[in-house]
């Protein structure tokens, strides 16, 4: 088990290195120049020859591998970053400073994390809370009118593009119906005012929860239908167990394995930032931040958010595999 974890962590580190190189190269050879953008912004669009100062201080006249190594070294020991005539201190783990705010990217990332975690945890909680029981209920009534109606209506819901669904949720609830209490969406720290935090997050959770619930209902239903047709379910019935024990202790226990697998990956992606949700419900989290960074050509922020997503995916994959081995005793990690 320990050896397995070490192996996975090493391979994860390798993946991260490759991802960081890829992101770095994309920007370096990309069609638009971050130096131009930042120069225009800071000289009120009278950049002209001063572009050279920016290009030199940002390192764009150096060989790409030198700059990458400089960046990578900064991640571990920190470094000073010069943009034009100003030098910014960036402590380890240094992911650079934002070209826009001149703040160390890592600090901004950490500052935005609570908002994203709030969205992800609340949304995931809702869709599991509803998705799994509804899926189980549908599987138990497989083939009945109720099951068919549920499956087709959920299929309809989940075939709506998510951004449209979230946008409509927002539009109807806050603008048209002016739902009381929850219309002022956004992130308010839970430590300041839990009630306000809840109210601000509520609609984002509802949008994410309903949408995710349709998918998790389908996953759960599918896994349950399969589990309930297994021989060991017949054995459980033949023992004289009550239906509740047969369905939950024997059926759901087995059906949960694939659902947990999907959930692990899903949740990692959610934590990496839910761009649409955060944008639409005005939550200043990592998703929203990465969107802005792309629009503003804020290279260090984009690199950081991509890397952050990669870290989350690697970690959530690893956690899923470990949980998998706990849930299914036949799986031994090696």
């Amino acid at each position: 088990m320990f050896a397995y974890l070490v192996k996975r962590l090493i391979s994860g580190a390798l993946v991260l290195t490759l991802v960081s190189i890829a992101v770095f190269l994309l920007f370096w050879y990309g069609p638009s120049s971050p130096a131009q953008t930042i120069c225009d912004r800071e000289t009120s669009n009278r950049c002209g020859d001063r572009i050279e100062i920016y290009e030199r201080t940002l390192g764009f006249d150096n060989p790409v591998h030198e700059e990458y190594l400089k960046w990578a070294k900064g991640v571990f020991v920190g470094r000073d970053i010069q943009i034009a005539s100003t030098t910014y201190e960036c402590e380890a783990p240094c992911l650079g400073v934002s070209y826009l705010t001149k703040q160390p990217v890592y600090e901004e990332l950490v500052a935005r994390l609570p908002a994203t975690v709030s969205v992800a945890v609340g949304g995931a909680f809702l869709y599991l809370l509803f998705g799994i029981p509804i899926g189980v209920a549908a599987a138990r009534r497989r083939g009945t009118v109720a099951d068919k109606a549920l499956v087709s209506s959920f299929l309809f819901l989940s075939s709506i593009p998510y951004y449209l669904f979230a946008l409509l949720t927002w539009l109807y609830l806050t603008v048209l119906w002016e739902a009381p209490y929850v219309s002022d969406t956004g992130y308010f720290p839970i430590t300041d005012n839990p009630a306000k935090w809840f109210a601000g997050m509520f609609l984002a959770w509802v949008a994410l929860g309903i949408f995710g619930c349709t998918q998790y209902t389908r996953y759960t239903r599918g896994a349950m239908v399969e589990a309930l047709s297994e021989d060991y379910i017949r054995t459980a019935k033949a023992k004289g167990l009550p239906p509740r024990a047969v369905v939950y202790r024997h059926g759901l226990r087995a059906a949960l394995v694939p659902v947990v697998t999907i959930f692990g990956i899903d949740f990692g992606t959610l934590l990496a930032g839910t761009i649409f949700t955060e944008r639409i419900f005005d939550i200043d989290g990592i998703g929203y931040w990465s969107l802005q960074a792309v629009q503003q050509k804020d290279l260090p922020v984009v690199a950081a958010t991509v890397l952050f997503s990669a870290v989350l995916l690697i970690v959530s994959n690893l956690i899923v595999d470990v949980i998998y081995s706990v849930l299914d005793p036949r799986v031994r990690l090696s």
């Binding site: 297994e230 021989d231 060991y232 017949r234 054995t235 459980a236 019935k237 033949a238 023992k239 004289g240 167990l241 024997h250 226990r253 087995a254 849930l327 299914d328 005793p329 036949r330």
Partner: peptide, 21 residues
């Protein structure tokens, strides 16, 4: 109350008939 008590059944392919978890 009868199942598994007065009458019980054993199935072929015990690997599939026993719960793997």
């Amino acid at each position: 109350r009868l199942r598994g008590n007065t009458v019980s059944m054993i199935f072929q392919d015990a690997l599939a008939a026993l719960h793997p978890f």
